[in-house]
Design a protein around this nucleic acid. Structure first.
Lengths: 413, 413
DNA sequence: AGTATTTTTTCGAGGCTCGAAAAAAAGAGC
DNA sequence: GCTCTTTTTTTCGAGCCTCGAAAAAATACT
């Protein structure tokens, strides 16, 4: 059973709350923080001055429009960019990019390169990450805060502890222990995160009004991925990152999926599936590995232009997504949806069929109320989600517990 | 954002933890509680004597095997049965039962009767509940603790706040405001809970070793229901009780479901679907409303006896369940399963097909590790889950916050 | 320059948990 | 039967934490 609450937990949690309030709002004053957290002014004052003394927060001097009001002006609090830094790494099919980010979320240095991930050994993938991170850290001036966290976003399934990449389309290897290897290398806590979960994390930061407690991000790309936020928390499986919407079964023993099984949603709605239906007309043809975004937009243009196999392929894709969503809604109820990735540019071709399918399922009860949103480019979202996740860890797990190793420079490794 | 932690929350939470430890363990001593909660002996001692003074806990004098050990003997703590009582009501198709339960979980009085729920008006259903509860409360001696909570378990979908019955197969009426009506009547907080969620709640109390943080309870009855516990919490939808496993789509545009849609898992695996496939061989025939348990066990006996349409019907049912589980496992990963209800008695006929179907889905990765358990009778589980839920509310929400209205007798209404 | 207003800090009070020590309640040994 | 040992439970003072009230600080208004 859960453990009792000690006296020092109290301060730790309230510190976390203050940090969180500062990160969320844009430069709130102590009074605003007191209002949002419900804590007293005196408590906020004490905690804030502690955090400032520790170099985690700073009073923002740039009083833009502070005036115009009677009384003592509010002092805006901001995260001190030099308090720490984190490394965000995004590994996807044939591409690796990484950046060092300061505590306020600004990019200090970044880099990216192309790889042929599918032909690389597992250790080679790790080594490439290590090399890029090492190089980036070396380029960071020592006046920046020390690197306190590394987060790696990868296409594929990770374990629920975010330690290993269990399976991924970008490589044939399983169980790659990214977190352990990088931790050993850099002496900094590391996590491996599912890319679609990072998209969901990014959406709530980019548009908290729309994406807050319950929403669904679906990546329409070569494969189909999902990031799910339920009751304000990122949803994960019992053992893995979970949320493999693309591998729910649309038609038992149906079309051949990239995963080797049959009838998955992805086998109808993934880029390769749409291309296959439009060009080959054979659901059982071996999935193509190297489709470009242009191949898909060309199919979409053709489908918009005239009736034919392209339009039919998008219809089938929309239907598969719709029935998949319908099944999911039976479990979790409908929630706002964001479709992300190149497939989102063709979502106009799928939407009527998605809605029609949902209407024939349990989700149909609320089908009109379901909002769809599209976002063509997933890359910046994955990057943002990844860095936010790392920063939140520093906020909640390191800086919330007063004993902070401060300003030792970026001397990791 | 979540609110700050105040100083008095601390005591409230630790009180809740002590109460919870006593309810969970069988008569633990103060020392044991200190060990499980991680709080100090002095804290436990203070809280325990407060709770005893308030009449919530009592020192259990019946020292069975307390001896045999050197040193001061441990004093067993127990819940004081007279501290409070709750009412647990179970409403299902054509049947209503209710019981008043003391704080230790013992039944004080109970009653049940048959109704024709499908022909009753919404207010008539409420009135029947009111009448039975009123009668039961009148029969309780005033030395028992006051009724502090009423919980109602119903077949069907409730809202996520557990206030209303949104939809149910037992009646044609929607949005029946059980909680509001009963609260107005009895002046006691009331919830309406989904029956399968209560089954899940019951399983973790009956067998906490097996059913703890992640498991799935599936009710195989006239329809198919599910109760889901993930990460130690009962899973509910964003707006409703959710978890409508039976209405995930097995085959788009497939067999006619009782809900009016097509291809739901239930339309293959519900009792009416198995009977329809075995006897009529027509997936589109209107679902029968009044099948007895004996009808199903007869079909199962026939299926075990010889190959034929009965066996084929159970095969289809197993397949539908298996593919449904496979789709669900894609989202949440596999977890231990309990099949409950009359259909569980025929699970031997379905299991191979369930496993075969799962093996063809994303869940197949771990298909051997998935454990199935069966439990023919759902009624005692629904009852147990319902009363536990009410008692936990009293523990956590009323008694944890010291200001308790004590020993005023069962003078509700 | 003085007053009003709002924000922030200071200070003492009250709670809570903790560790150490004391008290309590048994069995073990002689 | 008495003392010693062991274990559980209670007591007590110390140390934190949050809170409310009051004071201090900083600005606009007159």
């Amino acid at each position: 059973m859960s453990v009792g609450i000690r006296h020092d937990d109290l301060r730790r949690r309230n510190r976390a709350m203050v940090i969180s309030a500062v990160r969320r709002a844009s430069q709130p004053s102590r009074t605003e923080i007191a209002a949002t957290t419900g804590l007293s002014h005196s408590t906020i004052s004490t905690i804030a001055s502690d955090l400032i003394a520790e170099g985690i927060l700073a009073e923002a001097k740039g009083n833009e429009q502070a005036a115009m009001k009677r009384g003592r002006p509010q002092v805006a609090l901001a995260l001190d960019p030099k308090a720490a830094s984190i490394v965000a790494v995004v590994l996807s099919l044939n591409s690796l990019s990484a950046a060092v980010i300061d505590y306020a979320g600004n990019t200090i240095v970044e880099d990216s390169r192309r790889l042929v991930t599918q032909r690389m050994a597992a250790h080679a993938l790790i080594d490439e990450c290590v090399a890029m991170i090492r190089d980036l850290i070396a380029r960071v001036e020592t006046s920046n805060g020390p690197v306190l966290r590394i987060a790696l976003a990868v296409q594929g399934i990770t374990d629920s502890g975010s330690r290993k990449l269990l399976w991924s389309p970008i490589t044939s290897h399983d169980d790659i222990p990214f977190a352990d290897s990088l931790e050993q290398e850099f002496g900094v806590p590391v996590t491996v995160e599912n890319d679609c979960n990072m998209i969901a994390e990014a959406l709530r930061w980019r548009d908290p009004a729309r994406y807050r407690d319950d929403f669904i991000a679906i990546l329409l790309s070569h494969g189909i991925g999902m990031g799910l936020v339920l009751k304000g928390e990122l949803f994960t499986g019992t053992h893995s990152s979970g949320g493999e919407f693309g591998h729910m079964i649309h038609r038992p023993d149906g079309a051949l999926c990239r995963c080797g099984r049959r009838g998955c949603v992805e086998a109808y709605a993934g880029n390769y599936a749409i291309w296959r239906n439009a060009r080959l007309g054979d659901e059982n043809a071996e999935p193509l590995a190297d489709l470009s975004d242009e191949d898909i937009t060309a199919l979409a243009d053709a489908a918009r232009d005239h009736d034919g196999p392209e339009r039919e392929a998008f219809r089938k894709a929309g239907e598969a997504i719709g029935f998949g969503l319908g099944s999911m809604f039976a479990l979790i109820d409908p929630a706002p949806l964001a479709f992300v990735g190149v497939g989102a540019t063709a979502f106009d071709l799928m939407e009527p069929h998605v809605r029609a399918a949902i209407a024939r399922t349990a989700g149909g009860l609320h089908s009109k109320a379901i909002s769809f949103d599209t976002e063509p480019n997933e890359v910046p979202l994955i990057r943002l989600g990844c860095l936010m996740r790392a920063l939140l860890y520093v906020d909640q797990e390191i800086f919330a517990s007063g004993t902070t190793p401060r300003h030792t420079g970026a001397d990791v490794a």
